[in-house]
Amino acid sequence: MDVELIRRAKSRDPDAFTELMRSQMNSMYKTARQILQSDEDIADAVQDTLLTCWQKLDQLRDERAWRAWMMRILINNCYEQIRKHGLESSMDILPEAAAYSENYEQTEWQDLLWRLDEKYRMVLILYYLEGFRTGEIAQILGMPEATVRTRLKRGRDRLAEEYHGGKANE
């Protein structure tokens, strides 16, 4: 990540901020999608996150931690959407896997992931897809690192169970 870009954004340069956040849109969307299934809700959460990050970026002292900091704001905003609109409205619309990935094998894995409890799914996504360390995930999700490690292990185990179950039924 371009530290200079983050510093320019921190100094209230809107062009730098826009460039910085546009580079994170894929990550933000994929992470929000683990909590919210309605694209409208995801869009609102992402928009709120952009505005909040702009408002609060000057409070971030260590540029190295900015991505985890941003992700925590995003996740909080996703839960805020659930609070506003209710879990059901958000969860009723299941993701259209085909639109999300055209790769059949990956679609199968997405389907397996979606069967996991969100608390496991979120940790797996942040660890594998977003490349955060367990300590960073603990900070993002506001929980002890030990809990992250436990959820990572249980999530993997449960994913394996689902995988074996699926293979056995084939």
Binding site: D39, L50, N103, Y128
Partner: peptide, 28 residues
């Protein structure tokens, strides 16, 4: 491998892009 490779092929819906751009416009 598959989870790490899942980073590919993401299509961001138009509504998400639009609202993000609205935020950027507001900031500017």
């Amino acid at each position: 491998k598959i989870m790490q490779g899942w980073n590919n092929d993401t299509v961001i819906p138009e509504v998400v892009t639009r609202k993000a751009e609205e935020a950027f416009s507001r900031i500017h």
